[in-house]
Amino acid sequence: METSAFQSLKLAVVSATGLSKDALHVYVGLAVFLATSVALRKPLRSAVPWLAAIAVALAGEALDMRDDIASFGHWRWAASMHDILNTLFWPTVLLLLAKFGVLRNAK
Rank of each mutant, 00 (worst) to 15 (best):
M1R: 11
E2K: 10
A5M: 15
A5D: 07
Q7A: 12
Q7S: 14
K10F: 08
L11G: 09
V14L: 10
S15Y: 05
L19E: 02
L19R: 14
D22G: 14
D22H: 13
A23Y: 04
V26M: 03
V28Q: 03
G29D: 11
G29V: 00
L30G: 01
A31T: 03
A31M: 14
F33G: 03
F33T: 01
F33R: 05
T36R: 03
S37Y: 00
A39L: 11
L40C: 13
R41Y: 08
K42D: 09
K42S: 12
P43A: 00
P43I: 02
P43F: 09
P43C: 07
S46G: 00
A47G: 13
V48R: 06
A53R: 03
A53S: 14
A55N: 11
A55V: 14
A55G: 15
A57N: 01
A59H: 07
A59Q: 04
L63S: 05
R66S: 10
D67F: 15
D68W: 01
D68N: 10
I69P: 03
I69Q: 07
I69A: 12
S71Y: 11
H74C: 02
H74I: 09
W75F: 14
A78H: 09
A79I: 14
S80D: 12
M81I: 15
H82E: 15
H82K: 15
N86Y: 12
L88Q: 04
L88W: 05
F89Q: 02
W90N: 02
T92L: 04
T92I: 04
V93Q: 01
V93C: 04
V93R: 03
L94R: 01
L97P: 03
A98V: 02
G101W: 00
V102W: 10
L103C: 06
N105R: 14
N105P: 02
N105Q: 09
N105E: 12
A106I: 05
A106Y: 03
K107Y: 14
K107E: 13
